[in-house]
């Protein structure tokens, strides 16, 4: 029985933090476009955004491995810019996590944006406010429950990620070995105590995240 290694815990939190942060920046404009566009391209992008939800993580991980690899489109570009590989590195699993957790952020936001009364958006425009200012001051505050849902689900989903991270990042201590992979390692080594500790941590974290989400949403809806 090994002692508990805290590195996978910190790495998981770091990965979830960066993934959620990037998802906020990418997800809000994407959700805004999807919520209000009437173009057919919107339908295509919405379907594409939902794909990670239904695809097996290994399928997604496999294609991401090809795309982010040294000879892949994104991987080669990254290598040229930073002289560093994306796969088997932290940046690679962040990018993979962003794609994997994209529906967790975008879906609640799209339904939240669509539930905001069209009239209050239009009245803001007639009062001279730009679309960006209307988004920040009217749409987002009136869809705050959806924003919180997106944040919590994205973070919690990334914390529990396994397949995509393993495919893209492998199992490198301090670089890509997140909690879920550490559990897998411990079970393989028949170290059930370590597996238990990590697993209970994940279970407690997921339960508390969801309880917080439902609690706050219930309060806002009252």
């Amino acid at each position: 029985m090994e002692g508990i290694n805290y590195a996978p815990i910190w790495l998981t939190l770091k990965l979830s933090f960066w993934t959620t942060l990037i998802l906020v920046v990418v997800g809000i404009p994407l959700a805004y476009y999807l919520a209000y566009t009437k173009s057919r391209l919107g339908l295509f992008i919405e379907t594409l955004t939902t794909l990670p939800l239904v695809l097996p993580p290994t399928v997604l991980g496999f294609y991401l491995l090809l795309l982010l690899g040294k000879h892949g489109f994104i991987g080669s570009l990254w290598h040229r810019l930073f002289d560093r590989q994306l796969v088997f590195h932290f940046e690679g699993i962040v990018l993979a996590s962003v794609i994997y957790s994209l529906p967790m952020m975008v879906h609640p936001l799209v339904s939240g944006f669509r539930s905001v009364s069209r009239n209050i958006i239009e009245v803001s425009w007639t009062l001279g406010k730009s679309k960006l200012e209307t988004l920040i001051r009217v749409i987002l505050p009136n869809a705050k429950a959806s924003v919180l849902t997106g944040l919590v689900l994205s973070f919690a989903h990334t914390v529990g990620e396994f397949g995509v991270v393993l495919m893209v990042g492998g199992n490198i201590e301090g670089e890509t070995r997140v909690i879920s992979i550490a559990i897998y390692d411990a079970v393989e080594a028949i170290d059930y105590f370590t597996a238990h500790v990590y697993a209970i941590l994940l279970l407690a974290f997921s339960f508390l995240s969801l309880a917080l989400l439902y609690g706050v949403n219930r309060r806002w809806n009252l």
């Binding site: 009364s117 009239n119 209050i120 239009e122 009245v123 007639t126 001279g128 406010k129 009217v138 009136n142």
Partner: peptide, 20 residues
């Protein structure tokens, strides 16, 4: 001209006050 540049005041049937 977009609504932002027209300089209008618009009162909707449901008043459209900002709930937040």
């Amino acid at each position: 001209l977009p609504p932002q540049k027209r300089g209008i005041g618009f009162v909707f049937q449901d008043y459209a006050l900002f709930p937040n």
